[in-house]
């Protein structure tokens, strides 16, 4: 049966991972986008997004996951997330204050497109946290294998 070198875990784990990993990623994105109207937000969603990639790495070995999102790409995404957050904060000067909630001011509760800059900040945070957590995990894995 084993005609090529087996990487990662068994067939059962791989099949289940193939089925669930997309759902986990989607759930992370849902948490991020609904962070301003329901519990959740940038950090929790970002962690779930990172977990989906870590899941992939555990089941299929590190090459398969790093092909999807390499370490250099994740460090670039992390910096981009931080810069995006900072530039959103800087745009607040349009309204006169640093971090001022400058557009769609005072949105309606329970509506998805409201709350001004808070969803945008959540997206930036999730980018930073997701990429950062994945990069930390990848770095610790690479240490071990050296």
């Amino acid at each position: 049966m084993k005609n090529k070198k087996e990487v990662g875990m068994t067939l059962i784990v791989k099949t289940i991972t193939r089925l669930t990993v997309g759902l986990i990623l989607l759930y992370g994105i849902y948490i991020v986008l609904h962070g301003h109207v329901s519990p959740g937000g940038g950090f929790a969603g970002g962690v779930i997004i990172a977990l989906s990639f870590i899941h992939l790495m555990l089941a299929f070995g590190k090459e398969a996951a790093l092909k999807k999102l390499s370490q250099a790409a994740s460090s670039i995404l992390e910096s981009l997330g931080a810069l995006m957050f900072l530039s959103i904060a800087l745009l607040g000067f349009l309204g006169g204050y640093f971090f001022f909630n400058f557009f769609l001011h005072k949105g309606t509760p329970f509506a998805l497109f409201s709350a001004g800059i808070i969803p945008l900040c959540n997206i930036a945070i999730s980018l930073k946290v997701g990429a950062g957590l994945f990069a930390i995990f990848a770095v610790l894995i690479l240490f071990k294998s050296r």
Binding site: F43, V129, I136, L140, F143, K144
Partner: peptide, 23 residues
């Protein structure tokens, strides 16, 4: 939540240093 994030960063850094120390 903020302090958990900070704790995550500290723990990751110290674990990385510990692995290097073991090397």
């Amino acid at each position: 939540l903020t302090s958990i994030v900070i704790g995550l960063a500290v723990t990751a850094l110290i674990v990385a240093i510990a692995i290097r120390l073991y090397e």
